[in-house]
C-alpha cells in the first residue's frame, strides 16, 4: 500500500487530481476486511488527518458546519451541538464502539455509501448539503440528491467533502431509530430518521434500498394528514419509496414490515390521523394465560 501524506488541502486536491488515489480519513471502513482484501493493499491512499482545513466544526446561528474530518466523537462530546441537533449524537452512539466513534468521520460515512450507514439518515433528515471541493472548484450538493445507486454517488474521484452544512430550523419532531440484530456493535437491519420543521416532514430510511433514501411517498402521507389505522397502512407508500432485499443480515419481508411498524409506532402518538385511538394498540391485547396458578 502507498500512503500520501499531504499537510494542506490544496496539496491533497492536487494529489487526487493527479492520480486515482483514494482519500482516507479515519480508516475504519478500510480496516474491516484489510487482511483478506488484497486488492486494497496495492492501492494508493491520501491521508487527510494532517489537513487543518478539514478539522473542526462550527455551530452558528443559521447552520452547523461539520468539517470533512469531523468525527462522531467530536459531536458526541459537544453539548451545544447535541442540543441543536440531538439525532446526530444518537446516531453517532450507534456506530461501532468508542474506538470507532473516535476515528470514524461523518464525511467518511457519507462517501463509503453503505445503504446501512448510521450517520447518513440523520444528516439527510436535517437537510444536510455537501461542499465538494477539487482543483476544479467547489460544488454544493444536497445530501438527499447525492446518491445515484448502490455505492454510486455524485462525487468524482478528485473531490473531497470539505464540509457538511446543516441548516438550523425549529424542529417539532426529531426521531432516530435503529433496528439491529443486537443492542450494540450491530449493523442496521432497518432504520429511519424523521423530522418535522417549518419546511415540512423528512423521512429517511436506511438498509431498505440500494442507498440511504428519502421516502417522499411517506412524507406525502404525513403532509396530507391521511388516515393510517395500522402499520400496514404505510406499506403502499413505503413500497414506492424503498426496495429492500434479502441478505446475510435479514430478509426483504422483515425489513419492509418492520420499517412500517417502527414508523407507525413512532408516528401514532404524534399524528392525529394515525391509529384507531391515541392510546390503544392496533394489535388486540392478548387474553391472559389460562393456566391455574399452583
Amino acid at each position: 500500500m502507498k500512503l500520501l501524506l499531504p499537510s494542506a488541502l490544496d496539496e491533497a486536491l492536487d494529489m487526487l487530481a493527479a492520480s486515482e488515489a483514494i482519500p482516507m480519513a479515519g480508516g475504519t471502513d478500510l480496516m474491516v476486511h484489510w487482511p483478506q482484501n488484497l486488492d486494497a493493499h496495492s492501492r494508493t491512499y491520501v491521508d487527510l488527518s494532517r489537513i487543518d482545513a478539514l478539522r473542526g466544526y462550527r455551530l452558528g446561528a443559521d447552520e452547523l458546519v461539520l468539517g470533512g474530518a469531523t468525527t462522531y466523537w467530536d459531536v458526541i462530546e459537544d453539548a451545544a451541538v447535541c442540543e441543536a441537533f440531538p439525532m446526530l449524537a444518537r446516531a453517532a452512539r450507534q456506530v461501532g464502539a468508542i474506538q470507532i466513534q473516535t476515528r470514524g468521520t461523518w464525511a467518511g460515512n457519507i462517501v463509503n455509501a453503505s445503504p446501512a450507514a448510521d450517520g447518513v439518515p440523520v444528516l439527510m433528515a436535517y437537510d444536510a448539503s455537501l461542499e465538494l471541493v477539487s482543483t476544479r472548484g467547489t460544488e454544493i450538493v444536497a445530501l438527499a440528491d447525492f446518491y445515484r445507486g448502490y455505492k454510486q454517488m455524485r462525487r468524482t474521484h478528485d473531490q473531497l467533502i470539505r464540509a457538511i452544512r446543516l441548516p438550523r430550523r425549529s424542529y417539532t419532531i426529531e426521531h432516530f431509530e435503529k433496528v439491529g440484530a443486537r443492542k450494540a456493535q450491530a449493523i442496521t437491519k432497518v432504520g429511519f430518521a424523521l423530522t418535522r420543521s417549518e419546511v415540512g416532514w423528512r423521512v429517511v430510511a436506511n438498509s431498505v434500498a440500494p442507498t440511504v433514501c428519502r421516502c417522499p411517498a411517506v412524507e406525502e402521507v404525513l403532509t396530507s394528514e391521511r388516515t393510517v389505522s395500522a402499520p400496514e397502512g404505510l406499506l403502499p407508500a413505503l413500497d414506492q419509496d424503498i426496495a429492500p432485499i434479502d441478505d446475510l443480515r435479514s430478509t426483504a419481508a422483515y425489513r419492509r414490515r418492520v420499517l412500517a411498524r417502527v414508523l407507525y409506532a413512532c408516528l401514532a402518538p404524534l399524528c392525529p390521523g394515525f391509529g384507531p385511538s391515541k392510546t390503544a394498540s392496533p394489535i388486540p391485547p392478548l387474553a391472559g394465560p389460562d393456566e391455574p396458578d399452583r
Binding site: A230, E232, P236, P282, I283
Partner: peptide, 8 residues
C-alpha cells in the same frame, strides 16, 4: 393486498 387493514 389490503392497503389499510384495521387490525393485525
Amino acid at each position: 393486498a389490503s392497503p389499510l387493514c384495521d387490525a393485525d
